[in-house]
């Protein structure tokens, strides 16, 4: 349990998807123009992470890993194709649910909802999970050794992403009133803002839990 909490907190602040690994940047930069839409996308990403990472964990444990399916067979090289198939299927499901229950959010997210399937944060979390499965749970604070760990990691990564996108959206809303040099407007200044935010988040890297 202690390990799960530590994993959860670390994945929000220290191993933040955006600020430490730059995962999910495309939609992060494109959908962070106002807080409400950003929050919606953040929740959708968190939800998709929460479903896909444990599913991919099961896949890794019972199908892909060394000696998992058949003794002496290592199918790890199939991971890319299987993970992306799981993600694409689940995103389709989320899309249908959002369309049914919140048409306004569906309209606001637009093309970026189906694009969660190619959001690097989702695929990245699954691939990091695959790396962390091989770590030794006794010595490493990052190891994932049971399905509870996988869920804690997924939830933490999702909330970290949500925090990052809502923070950037809030800054960009205020930035609309500032006088930025013409060629730097839009994308350029957003990048520099994210850089400064990442620097702020660097101070968490010494955190010991």
């Amino acid at each position: 349990m202690e390990h799960m909490i530590s994993l959860f907190v670390r994945s929000i602040f220290v191993d933040n998807m955006i600020f430490a690994f730059f995962l999910g940047m495309c939609s992060y930069l494109a959908v962070s123009k106002n807080v409400k839409t950003a929050f919606g996308l953040g929740v959708a990403v968190t939800f998709v992470l929460l479903v896909t990472v444990p599913a991919d964990y099961a896949l890794q444990m019972y199908v892909l890993g060394p000696n998992a399916l058949v003794e002496g067979v290592d199918l790890t090289f199939l991971a890319f194709i299987l993970f992306i198939a799981v993600i694409a299927g689940i995103v389709q499901l989320v899309e249908m649910v959002v369309e049914r229950f919140s048409p306004s959010l569906y309209a606001a997210l637009g093309i970026f909802l189906p694009l969660i399937a190619v959001n690097c944060a989702i695929m990245g979390a699954s691939l990091f999970m695959q790396q962390r499965v091989q770590m030794d749970p006794e010595t490493s604070t990052q190891a994932i050794s049971c399905v509870g760990d996988a869920i804690a990691y997924a939830l933490g990564s999702g909330i970290g992403w949500l925090l990052a996108i809502v923070g950037l959206a809030a800054i960009r809303e205020k930035m609309a009133y500032t006088d930025v040099p013409k060629p730097l407007q839009g994308l350029g200044i957003t990048f520099i803002t994210v850089g400064l935010m990442a620097m702020a988040f660097m101070c968490f890297s010494g955190l010991n839990i």
């Binding site: 350029g188 200044i189 957003t190 520099i192 850089g195 620097m199 660097m202």
Partner: peptide, 17 residues
Amino acid sequence: MPAMSLIIVGCVIWAHR
């Protein structure tokens, strides 16, 4: 540090534009 790459890309975009 990772943070610097964001700022450099921001500057590259600035120069490019």
